[in-house]
Design a protein around this nucleic acid. Structure first.
Lengths: 283, 283
DNA sequence: ATGCCCGTTCCACGCTGTGGGACATTCCCG
DNA sequence: CGGGAATGTCCCACAGCGTGGAACGGGCAT
């Protein structure tokens, strides 16, 4: 047997292995073979094959009959969509993201912090020719992005320290903040001014303004940002973007506070749109 | 679901159970307790608890410390996003969906057929007050929706028959087509006119126009649709919507054909008889 | 208080997942 | 064209691991 993890706090081995296999798939390698997976997770071919067979019967992976290679299946997409669709903040935020987009035409992101990283949970693409590349569902470092920094700024000190320790402060550009102390000071500034700016700290040519969204308890649960190309920006527009995200974040926060009281199971969107039935196919 | 499968074609039980647990979560029940899950999948509390513990350590589920209940976790969202982000058609289609939306202001859907059902893989929400409720990632029956019918119409006869047998033709409204022969005739009409109309066949007040998108091999891989409220529609606008989806579908199809030349490794799969496989691994 | 149901933990049993091996096939290189 | 080395798939005996019953403790109605 390989080295693998120390099997310390034990879970069900087969399930852990199945998950490990699923997680081996990535955007860069969306199709993998039995042997590739075996090497990646350190398991015997036959074991991987059997696990894949089980996963295939559930639809979590599909095998290309021609190449014999495996890809992730749509049921995973369904489950994943459920996760984000049930995130209330996303539902509430959508129209406000659209409003921002109409106002400035730039790429607008909605993101949350998970395990010390930013996860994009919604996005409206810029209408401009030059765009930043991003994908909903992907992760980005927190310490050098607008979304990430504004969310870090609202973390308790201990949590921020924890994130720094676990994720480090990797340098991406000459602007990247890599000193814990400097980051902490910067976070204080962000809290004070009510928004975060990212001026090429993750990617040289990219600028970003972000503001935090709060739930009814006052906790920062998400953030909204406008991303633009640095070359197209001046003082005035930076201020405009900062103002836009702050306004939108405030409105979204209000929406979260209000809608929370009527929150329970199964939300037929009690507010605005006249709903025409959630269409549940028979089972 | 009572009986569970007869353990005939065996997979790894623990993995199957873990997947069953994950799939028990739904939009209507995004949070479940150990006991609820136990009842739902027919397993002992302790077994479910152990499985959940394992799933939690992988992040696939998270437990609310307060209520002790479980929800699906973000890593699932990431994996699910990967699935759809690697679907080329979605990337290519996006701008054209936006174009349709600008032209008519209605809800625009992009969908594919999977296991005889429609899966929504992208969507632009209507700007109107009255909206149809739908979610990306959800499924809908094929025989009574615009997207579904236009995709069924491009299936080989045998596959269509297979879908009918496996999914049935459940009645949703008085307009729903429930006769296999009638559906087949209707499909012929759809092929002839190049688009499908759904006039209240799934939900009374909802109308829909849809057209198929083809890949470079000529196979219908997806479809695009405009959904609107029947009351707001007249002959002229129906024709307009039909025309819009057809134009967009054609452009998207061209995009798929063109982009194929730069499609990296592992391109072929030119043959492949398109059968919606019953997901039975070779045995 | 008193049930009732919940989540959690523990443990001996024996079923079930394991991985080595065998095999056919495909691909690549000589 | 043929041999070698990959690959995917199948099979099987062993024992390790997942299983579920039982027991414990806490929370919430009654």
């Amino acid at each position: 047997m390989r080295v693998r993890q120390a099997a310390k706090a034990s879970g069900i081995r087969a399930v852990e292995r199945a998950v490990a296999i699923l997680r081996t798939f990535s955007s860069g390698a969306p199709e993998l073979s039995v042997s590739e997976l075996g090497r990646a997770v350190g398991l015997h071919k036959s074991t991987v094959h059997r696990l894949l067979g089980t996963l295939e019967r559930t639809g979590f992976v599909v095998q290309d009959p021609g190449t014999k290679r495996y890809r992730l299946g749509l049921p995973l997409f369904e489950l994943g969509s459920m996760v984000v669709n049930t995130l209330e903040v996303r539902r509430v935020a959508r129209p406000h993201l659209e409003e921002i987009h109409r106002a400035c035409g730039e790429t607008v992101h909605l993101g949350i912090l998970d395990e010390g990283e930013v996860v994009y949970i919604d996005k409206i693409e810029s209408t401009r020719r030059v765009r930043m590349y991003s994908q909903v569902g992907r992760r980005a470092p927190a310490h050098c992005t607008g979304l990430g920094k504004v969310l870090l700024a609202h973390l308790p000190d201990a949590s921020l320290a924890d994130v720094i320790e676990r994720r480090g402060l990797r340098r991406f550009t000459s602007k990247t903040i890599t000193s814990p102390k400097e980051l902490r000071d910067h976070c204080a500034l962000i809290r004070q001014q009510g928004y975060a700016l990212d001026t090429g700290e993750h990617e040289e040519l990219i600028q970003c303004a972000a503001a935090a969204i709060y739930d009814h308890t006052g906790k920062a649960v998400a953030a909204v940002s406008i991303t633009s190309v640095a070359a197209a920006m001046d003082q005035h527009r930076v201020a405009e973007h900062a103002s836009l995200v702050q306004q939108a974040a405030r409105k979204i926060s209000e929406g979260l506070g209000a809608s929370l009281s009527i929150r329970h199971k199964e939300g037929p969107a009690p507010t605005r749109p006249v709903v025409a039935r959630p269409s549940t196919p028979g089972r």
